[in-house]
């Protein structure tokens, strides 16, 4: 199922973007949601199923984005000699870099605290609400909120330092 979801996300993201234009930040939530609707077919899945799917999709979304950011960064380094007709503003590389930094930080966090990583993935890459995460992980919403808040603070600190 996982390669299927990965491919579906990639395809959807491309279609989504073609519609919306590149300048508007992508709604990862919308993407994951759409992927889910497609993969679930015509069936009406339960709330639990949906949440579980979101959980898986969040991790895959992270993988998709990180893979692409890596590819793009190395491509950019290789392409420095090429003629660029339009100057891309310097700001342009930042999101890629910070995405990769974030990915590294999450990797470190996963060794000691995989739950927090999962929550971050669900929030950032799956666009899931605290309630949805709580359902998937069979936890109380309150605990999810607390954990997420701490995880975010830690992530910001790691990325700033």
């Amino acid at each position: 199922m996982i390669p299927l979801v990965y491919a579906e996300l990639k395809k959807l993201a491309a279609a989504h973007l073609r519609r919306e234009g590149r300048e508007r930040p992508l709604e990862t939530t919308a993407l994951v949601h759409e992927a889910f609707l497609r993969l679930a077919g015509g069936r009406h899945p339960s709330y639990e199923n949906r949440a579980h799917f979101y959980g898986i999709a969040s991790r895959l979304m992270r993988q998709v984005l990180v893979d692409l950011a890596r590819a793009r960064m190395s491509e950019k380094r290789g392409a420095l000699q090429q003629v660029e007709l339009a100057e891309i503003p310097n700001l342009g590389r930042q999101p890629d870099e910070s995405l990769l930094t974030m990915n590294d930080a999450l990797g470190r966090l996963a060794r000691t605290d995989p739950l927090k990583v999962q929550l971050i993935e669900m929030r950032y890459f799956g666009g899931m609400t605290a309630e949805e995460s709580a359902t998937v992980l069979s936890m109380s919403v309150h605990v999810v909120r607390r954990e997420l808040r701490l995880a975010q603070a830690w992530l910001h600190k790691e990325m700033a330092g």
């Binding site: 993201a13 973007l17 590149r22 990862t28 793009r72 910070s98 995405l99 929030r123 890459f125 975010q152």
Partner: peptide, 30 residues
């Protein structure tokens, strides 16, 4: 204290960067 210092403002810039990176990444797919 270091953690608390990064507590305020929460997700805004991370979320924004993820979104932008996503847009770019997917732009490359296109």
């Amino acid at each position: 204290e270091a953690l608390l210092a990064f507590d305020s403002g929460a997700s805004s810039f991370l979320l924004r960067d993820v979104s932008i990176a996503a847009s770019r990444a997917l732009g490359d797919i296109i």
